[in-house]
Each structure stands twice: as C-alpha cells, then as structure tokens.
Computed example of a mutant assay.
Amino acid sequence: MVHPYAVAGFLVALLPLIATPGASLALLVRHVTDSGRRQALPVILGTITGLYIHAALAIAGLSALVMRSSLAFTAVKLIGAVYLIGLGVWTWRSATPNATPTLHRQRLPKRADSVYTQAFLANVLNPKAAAIYLTLVPQFIAPHQSFGGQILTLATAHALLITLWLAAWTLLIRRASRTLQKPRFKRTTARTTSVVLVALGMQSAAT
C-alpha cells in the first residue's frame, strides 16, 4: 500500500506533465469537436489502457529493458513517431473537403473502437509515458512493500488524474458548442490537431 503522502506527491509531480498538451488532448479536442462529447469516453479509456500497459511493463521489467537498450528504445520511439505523424496526416486530410469520400470521412471518427485505438496507440507507443514509470514512479515506492501493488496504485492515481483533466477539457469544449459546430471551426480544429500530432511525432523522433 502506497502512503497517501506518496500518492499526493506523485500527483503533484505529474501535474506539469499532464498539463502539457499532448496527443491525448489533441485527439480529445478533435473528436469531441467533430462528433460530440460521447467521443471523450473512448479517448479517455484508450489513454488509461495505455497507462496500465506501461505500468504492467514496468512491473515485468520490460520497460527497463527497452530503456536500457538504445536499439530497442530507438525502435519504440520511431514507431510511436511514425504513428503520430501518420495520424496527423490522416486528420489533416479528413478535414480537407473532397480529400476523401464524404461518407467515409464522416463515419470513421464516430466509431468508438477507432477513437479508442487511436488514443491507446498514441499513449502506449510513447516512450516518454514509459519513462514516467521508470524514473518518476520509483521515487514514490517503498522498497519493503509490494512492488507491483504500489505501481498499480500509482497508475490508478495517474489514470484518475488524467481522466479528470480530459473530462474538464470536454466540459470546456462543449460549453462552446455553437462555435464548435461551425464547419469552418471544425476544419481549423482538425488542422490544428494534425499539426500538433505531427509536431509531437517529429519531437519524439528527434529526442
């Protein structure tokens, strides 16, 4: 069992990382703007699933292996970068009139499984998310207690915090629903999201 003060300290340390705009927030803004607040749920669930995957890998020691091997780390980093860049390009094209058939362009973002998969892959392929469980989490773990149990507790706290953060953004987005439903604003949001995703991918590949 992690001490409550340790959990609180972990959450405080996470706040700046969560507050920094990333792929999850970019996807949330894109899909909620385009298809409504129901799309926030698959984005949140996909992100949380990715967090638990990183926690499980940290428990198993696999993440440590990847981080210690420059070749494995580079491979994971490049896969994640390519995915984010590809997702950014697809998002831009989906916002461009006549870029793809209208029926396909409207249906794909509305599929919960598609949105969930996008959010999941954006998180699980992010080596920086894995680094949280290799560098930050150990600072709040007591060595004489259950290692796996403590990591899962901190992962759950992490999941709750990011859920609150994304839910708060969903409320803010929906408060401006009239503006958000304008086709011009949707195109602008989608293109802004695509630029963010491509930038994140390029940054991940470069670092």
Rank of each mutant, 00 (worst) to 15 (best):
A58T: 07
N98C: 12
P143R: 00
F120L: 15
R30K: 15
L171I: 02
P183Q: 01
F140T: 00
T49A: 14
Q150I: 08
A157K: 06
W165L: 08
L164T: 06
H104F: 06
A19Y: 03
S24E: 14
P101G: 06
Q150L: 13
S114W: 09
W169T: 00
V32Y: 02
A190T: 02
L180H: 03
V66H: 01
G46Q: 03
A81Q: 08
R174V: 11
T193Y: 00
R191W: 01
L108V: 07
A159H: 06
Q203Y: 12
S63W: 01
T96S: 02
G80L: 07
I18S: 11
T163Q: 12
L25A: 11
M202R: 06
S177L: 14
K128Y: 09
V29N: 02
S69W: 02
G50S: 04
A95C: 05
P143T: 01
I141R: 09
L71P: 05
R191E: 00
A157S: 06
H54W: 10
A129H: 08
V76P: 05
L103T: 04
T96P: 09
L65Y: 00
W169V: 10
V124Y: 00
F120W: 06
A13D: 09
L125D: 08
F10T: 12
A159I: 12
A26Q: 12
L25Q: 11
V198T: 10
A55G: 07
Q181S: 07
P97Q: 04
V12R: 03
A60Y: 01
V124D: 13
